[in-house]
């Protein structure tokens, strides 16, 4: 069994890499080669597609926009989730269990259900087509997730830590910021990772809430596809570039992923 089973992860990774390889492969081809021949690697290697993206503001601003609202969302979600998770892990209060489940129900809300009302709401408050609108809309599913993860981590920290600090005369907020937050740094990393992930990959709401100024890269891709016919090489290059920020983030948190899943409740 052992000899066979060693190949299972390798086979799985090959399966995962194939579609990605095909996308990357295509991004280095000319449109003619993509449509004309079936080639396993680029015969007429070209960087033209990438040059177009990095020199045309309608393309590269898409990346800037996406990264902007994702960062705002991550910071905001984790910042407000920290005290709330602390409350859930340390105190009993009126309606705590119901509140916790209600928060989770928002993680279940289908984005398709909320797209149109969100458009109306954010137009009404004058935030339509801003980074803040998308960042705020994404807190709907990221805050519950961040609270869930952080609560798991905080419950793993013994209560004696809080009590000792109290006896030593630390004011609460000073204890929270100087002692408690560094203790659960790994948990904050994991929560931030998941907020980044779900905000980066979500498109339906991001697309609904933006028009020009804050349009995410993934939306630029779909709109370009419909207006100028299919420039497959260009689309493939843009798609390849959307994978890179994710790959970076995974690389930095790789040691926390497994640990984070085990300690936190996600």
């Amino acid at each position: 069994m052992n000899r066979v089973s060693r190949f299972v992860p390798a086979l799985y990774i090959i399966f995962l890499m194939l579609p990605i390889y095909w996308l990357v492969n295509m991004s280095f081809k000319t449109t003619n080669e993509i449509l004309g021949d079936f080639t396993l690697w680029p015969r007429q290697f070209t960087l033209e597609n990438y040059i177009t993206i990095f020199t045309d503001p309608t393309w590269y601003m898409g990346y800037v926009n996406s990264l902007a609202y994702v960062s705002i969302n991550t910071v905001l979600s984790v910042a407000v989730a920290l005290p709330a998770a602390y409350a859930f892990s340390r105190y009993r209060f009126l309606g705590d269990k119901h509140l916790f489940f209600w928060l989770l129900t928002n993680r279940m809300a289908p984005a398709a259900v909320f797209a149109l009302p969100f458009f109306q709401l954010y137009s009404a408050v004058g935030l339509f087509d801003t980074y803040l609108a998308v960042a705020l809309a994404h807190t709907l599913f990221n805050i519950p997730l961040a609270v869930w993860i952080l609560e798991g981590f905080m419950s793993g920290v013994p209560k004696e830590l809080d009590e000792t600090a109290y006896v030593d005369g630390y004011p609460f907020w000073s204890f929270f910021i100087k002692i408690f937050i560094p203790t659960i740094a790994a948990g904050i990393g994991v929560a931030a990772f998941f907020c980044f992930m779900f905000s980066w990959v979500e498109l339906l709401l991001a697309k609904t809430l933006t028009a020009v100024d804050a349009k995410p890269i993934a939306a630029t891709m779909t709109r370009t596809a419909s207006t100028s016919g299919y420039e497959l090489g260009l689309l493939a290059a843009a798609g390849t570039l959307t994978i890179i920020p994710g790959a970076f983030v995974i690389y930095f948190v790789r040691n926390y992923i497994a640990k984070g899943f085990a300690l936190g409740r996600v």
């Binding site: 992930m197 990959v201 959307t242 994710g246 790789r254």
Partner: peptide, 10 residues
């Protein structure tokens, strides 16, 4: 973990 971080429309 790579597929998890690719935007859904991509």
């Amino acid at each position: 973990a790579l597929p998890l971080l690719i935007p859904w429309n991509v």
